[in-house]
Measured scan of single mutants.
Amino acid sequence: DETGKFLVLALYDYQEKSPREVTAKKGDILTLLNSTNKDWWKVEVNGRQGFVPAAYVKFL
């Protein structure tokens, strides 16, 4: 159920650099879980949760 969740689009490829991050490919649609940090947003992609740089994604 996606009610109340926001989707964001990956603008660039991002390769995770730590276990707390997730890899995303340009064009991926990610479920935004938390955007309270202006630099790192928590997302879910391909069943995995983790952080990506906020500058790499935008709201749909």
Rank of each mutant, 00 (worst) to 15 (best):
T31M: 11
Y56C: 15
V8Y: 07
T31R: 13
L9I: 15
L30Y: 08
A24E: 03
V52E: 01
N46Q: 08
A10M: 15
A24P: 02
T36G: 09
V8I: 07
F51N: 01
L9V: 15
F51Q: 01
V43H: 00
W40T: 00
E21T: 07
V45Y: 07
T31N: 08
W41L: 07
Y12C: 15
L30S: 01
F59W: 09
Q15G: 07
T31F: 11
K17Y: 03
G4E: 12
P19C: 14
Q49H: 07
A54V: 07
G47C: 11
L11C: 13
T31P: 04
V45W: 05
N34H: 06
L9Y: 12
W41E: 00
W41S: 00
R20E: 13
Y56E: 01
D13A: 06
R48E: 05
N46D: 11
K17W: 06
E2P: 13
N46Y: 06
L33Q: 01
K42V: 12
S18K: 05
D13S: 07
S18A: 07
K5I: 12
R48D: 03
V57K: 00
Y12H: 10
L32R: 00
L30R: 00
T31I: 15
K42D: 04
V45H: 11
L33W: 04
W41A: 01
F6P: 12
L33A: 01
A55H: 11
K38F: 07
T3D: 12
Q15N: 13
K42R: 10
V43R: 00
K58F: 09
Y14H: 03
P53A: 06
N46S: 08
E2F: 13
D1L: 14
A55E: 10
K5M: 12
L30P: 00
I29T: 04
R48P: 04
S18M: 06
R20F: 14
L33T: 03
Q49N: 05
F6N: 10
K58T: 15
W40G: 01
E44C: 12
F59H: 10
E44F: 05
K26F: 06
T23F: 04
G47V: 05
D28G: 04
L9Q: 10
V52F: 15
K25P: 02
V57A: 00
G50H: 02
K17N: 09
N37M: 07
V45P: 01
K5A: 11
K58C: 15
A54I: 06
P53G: 06
E16N: 05
T36E: 13
T31C: 13
A10K: 02
N34Y: 07
L9K: 06
W40K: 00
T36N: 11
K26S: 07
T36C: 13
K38N: 10
K38Y: 06
E44I: 06
L30A: 03
A55V: 10
P53L: 09
K42Q: 12
K58W: 09
G4A: 12
L9T: 08
K25H: 11
E44R: 05
K42I: 12
E2S: 14
E2C: 15
Y14A: 01
L32P: 01
D39Y: 15
E16I: 06
T23V: 03
P53N: 04
P53I: 08
A54Y: 04
T3S: 12
A55G: 11
N34F: 08
N34Q: 09
T36R: 09
V22Y: 03
V52D: 01
A10Y: 05
L7E: 06
F6D: 09
K5E: 09
A24S: 04
E21Y: 07
F59V: 14
I29V: 11
L7K: 11
Y12W: 12
E44W: 05
S18Q: 05
E2Y: 14
F6Y: 12
G47W: 04
A54F: 04
A55R: 13
D1K: 10
S35E: 05
L9A: 04
N34K: 04
S35P: 07
T23S: 15
E16P: 15
K5C: 15
D28C: 11
W41K: 00
A54K: 06
V43L: 02
A10F: 12
E44S: 08
L11Q: 03
T23Q: 03
V57H: 00
F51T: 02
Q49A: 10
S35C: 15
I29K: 03
N37G: 09
S35L: 07
S18C: 12
R20M: 13
V43E: 01
Q49L: 06
A10W: 06
D28H: 04
V52K: 02
D13Y: 08
F51K: 01
T23D: 03
F59I: 15
K26R: 10
D28T: 06
V52C: 07
L9M: 13
D39K: 13
K38V: 09
L30V: 04
K25V: 09
S35F: 12
V45R: 07
G47R: 02
K17C: 13
S18V: 02
E44G: 03
L9D: 00
V22I: 13
K58D: 09
V52W: 05
E44L: 06
V45M: 08
G50F: 05
K25A: 07
K26T: 07
P53Y: 07
G50C: 08
V52T: 01
D39M: 12
D28W: 08
E2L: 14
S35V: 09
N37P: 03
N46W: 07
A24N: 03
D1Y: 13
D39R: 12
T23R: 03
F6V: 15
E2D: 13
S35A: 14
A54M: 05
T3M: 12
L11M: 11
L60F: 11
F59T: 09
Q49M: 10
E2I: 13
T31H: 10
E44Q: 07
Y14E: 01
K42M: 15
D13T: 07
V8W: 05
W40P: 00
D1R: 06
V57R: 00
L30M: 15
T23H: 04
S18G: 13
Y14P: 02
L33P: 00
A55N: 11
A54G: 02
Y12V: 09
A10L: 15
T23E: 02
P53E: 04
G47I: 06
F6W: 14
N46F: 07
L11A: 04
E21I: 05
D39L: 13
K58G: 13
L11Y: 04
F51V: 04
R48V: 09
P53T: 07
R48N: 05
K42S: 05
N46A: 09
P53H: 06
V22L: 10
V22F: 12
V8K: 00
